Simulated assay, not measured.
Amino acid sequence: MPKSSRPAPSRTTVRSRALSRRALSRATLVRQWLVERQDATALEAIEHLVGMQAQAPLAPYVGLWSRLRDFDPTELATLLENREAVRGSAMRATIHLMSSRDFLAIRPLIQPRLDREIYQNQTYGRHRLEGLDMDAVLAAGLEELTAGPKTATQLREALAPRFPDREPAALAHAVRCLLPTIQIPPRGIWGKGGNPTLSTADLWLGRPIDPNPSVDQVILRYLAAFGPASVQDIQTWSGLTRLTEVVDRLTPDLQIYTDAESGRTLYDLATITLPEEDLEVPTRFLPEYDNLLLSHADRTRWIETETRARLTLQEVLTRGSILHEGTAVALWRLDRKTKKTAVLEIEPIVKLTKKAHQEIEAEAGELLTFAASNAQAEIRITN
């Protein structure tokens, strides 16, 4: 079984070596459960990863499949339907799948990022909210959500008559970000769908948001899942700023490394031993928005800067990524034109070796067995 996702640090700080890009990638891949699939539950995996980005509603299913042995989609669907897990705005003001207890504990810590999302948003930003009694807006939004879950359209329609001189979409966006909103099922359920429908975590779960959340514990858990990492990495993952003081407070209990490429100071749990730099790692398919690729300020441990610069934002956001030997080498998308046919489209972003082709095709076949077992499926690798 995997180690607890809530580690207690050692009391001794040990200063150590500089870490190469390869050493960093191996260290993080191991703790991301992408070197060896784990015999863990979906809930244990979600908590170990401190949540999974879930803007693409079904992306976490592929993320869990890549990390767990014998993962069954109904396990995650049941967690959502039984309210043991939720999908809501969290790190970086994006939709995350989290255990219910984690959402209640972590969501209040992320509020400063969601405040910025409100007042700096290009579409619904400050100039549309100037002079607005935000407390009154949130009270009205809470009243409407207490009466029952609402889609974004329903929330806009409910708020518009209360604030007739304001844009309904801006009002609804403020409620979504400033209240601890979640998207309830069937959104995010394997084999189902539907428009995002909002409630709040405390209403949906019947439990209050944690009044005394611990940013220290969240940072330690981040390191357990994504480390070794710099302060900038932690801030990139969370969307928060000014965390240097918090990390400085934790430093006496942490292992310190140096990034051999940038010279930045890296922090890690003193209880974790790093794997060998020459560790062989398998080919893995990551879903859209997988946090592995989004949770470090310096992403060169996964993808060369030149390669990343060639990709458009649309390409990156609408397709998953394929890791080969610890590096992103291709993008993928599963096209289900009908219920009976499926095409797994793979587009290399670097020149693939013969070995890479073979390993990608083998893992692609496993993915199709998982995601499209009831369809006539094929794999297409573009040149």
Rank of each mutant, 00 (worst) to 15 (best):
S16R: 14
R6P: 00
L29K: 04
F71Y: 15
T41P: 08
W65Y: 13
V35T: 08
P9C: 06
E47I: 06
R6Y: 13
V50R: 14
V62H: 07
L29M: 11
L24Y: 05
A45E: 05
A8D: 14
G51T: 08
Q55W: 01
Y61P: 06
T28M: 11
T41I: 11
L43H: 13
D70G: 10
P60D: 12
M52E: 08
A54T: 04
L68C: 09
P9Q: 08
L49H: 15
D39R: 09
E36C: 00
A42I: 01
L29Y: 03
G51W: 05
I46N: 06
G51A: 04
S10E: 14
P60N: 09
T41S: 15
S10V: 15
R67L: 03
A42H: 04
A8M: 11
V14R: 12
R21H: 04
E47A: 12
S20P: 01
A23F: 09
W65V: 03
A23M: 08
R6I: 14
M52T: 04
S25N: 15
D39C: 00
L64C: 03
S66Q: 10
L68S: 05
Q55E: 07
L29R: 04
E47N: 13
L64T: 02
I46Y: 10
R31L: 03
R11W: 13
Q32S: 07
V14G: 00
P57E: 13
A54D: 04
V35G: 00
T12F: 08
P60K: 10
A59W: 09
R67A: 02
H48P: 00
Q38W: 01
Q53L: 12
H48T: 05
S66G: 15
T12Y: 07
R11E: 14
D39A: 12
P9V: 02
S5Q: 00
L24R: 15
V35H: 04
D39Q: 06
A59I: 03
W65H: 13
T13P: 05
V62T: 13
T41F: 04
R67D: 01
L19H: 09
P9G: 04
L43D: 13
V62M: 11
I46Q: 06
L49T: 06
L58R: 12
S20W: 02
R22F: 08
T41C: 03
R22L: 13
L43A: 15
Y61N: 10
R37L: 00
V35L: 00
D39L: 05
Y61S: 09
V50E: 06
R37A: 01
V30E: 11
Q32N: 02
T41Q: 09
S66R: 08
H48V: 00
A59S: 15
R67T: 01
L49D: 03
T28Y: 01
V50C: 13
A27T: 07
R11L: 15
H48Q: 10
A45M: 14
P7V: 05
R37S: 05
S5K: 01
A59D: 11
A54P: 02
L34G: 09
S20C: 02
G51I: 08
L68G: 10
A56N: 07
T41E: 05
L19V: 06
L43V: 07
Y61H: 15
L49N: 04
L68P: 07
T41V: 07
L19P: 04
A56F: 07
